[in-house]
Amino acid sequence: MEKGVTVNAAASKTVSEAAVAKPTEKNTVAEIKAYLSENGIEFASSAKKADLLALV
C-alpha cells in the first residue's frame, strides 16, 4: 500500500509573498520599510513608524 504525502500550502509562503499584504501597526519598522522598498516607494531612513504607514 502506498502512503500519500500531504503538503500544507499555507506553510510554504516565501518572504516576498508574505510582504505582498499591506503593512499595519502590527508590523515592525523593518517590515514596513521592506514593503515600501519592494513597491518603489521612497522614504526617509529616519522616518518613524507612523510616517512610514502613512506612505502605504
Score class of each variant (00 low, 15 high):
27 N>S: 10
17 E>A: 10
30 A>V: 12
37 S>I: 09
21 A>D: 14
51 D>T: 04
3 K>E: 11
6 T>S: 10
43 F>M: 02
9 A>E: 11
18 A>P: 00
28 T>I: 11
6 T>C: 04
3 K>T: 12
23 P>T: 03
21 A>Q: 14
20 V>D: 14
19 A>Q: 13
56 V>N: 09
25 E>N: 11
35 Y>S: 02
43 F>S: 01
7 V>E: 05
4 G>K: 09
27 N>A: 12
52 L>T: 05
53 L>V: 04
47 A>G: 00
53 L>D: 02
7 V>D: 04
53 L>H: 01
29 V>L: 11
4 G>N: 12
29 V>G: 09
31 E>L: 06
42 E>C: 00
21 A>T: 15
45 S>Q: 09
19 A>N: 15
26 K>N: 14
29 V>A: 14
16 S>V: 15
13 K>M: 13
11 A>K: 11
11 A>T: 06
56 V>R: 05
14 T>F: 01
36 L>T: 00
50 A>S: 13
10 A>V: 07
25 E>A: 10
7 V>M: 01
23 P>Q: 06
53 L>R: 08
26 K>S: 15
22 K>H: 04
18 A>I: 12
4 G>H: 11
9 A>M: 13
14 T>Y: 00
25 E>G: 00
23 P>G: 06
55 L>A: 03
22 K>R: 14
45 S>Y: 01
24 T>E: 07
6 T>D: 04
50 A>Q: 07
34 A>D: 08
33 K>D: 01
4 G>P: 07
26 K>I: 05
7 V>L: 10
41 I>A: 07
48 K>Q: 13
55 L>E: 03
27 N>H: 14
22 K>P: 09
46 S>T: 15
8 N>R: 04
45 S>F: 05
18 A>H: 06
13 K>C: 08
44 A>Y: 10
33 K>F: 04
49 K>G: 07
31 E>F: 03
23 P>S: 08
5 V>E: 11
51 D>W: 03
53 L>I: 04
3 K>V: 14
27 N>C: 13
35 Y>D: 03
31 E>H: 07
30 A>E: 15
14 T>C: 00
54 A>R: 10
24 T>I: 12
42 E>A: 15
27 N>V: 03
52 L>A: 05
41 I>F: 09
36 L>A: 03
40 G>D: 12
46 S>H: 03
41 I>D: 03
23 P>E: 02
33 K>H: 06
34 A>N: 02
49 K>W: 05
4 G>D: 12
38 E>D: 15
16 S>M: 12
14 T>S: 15
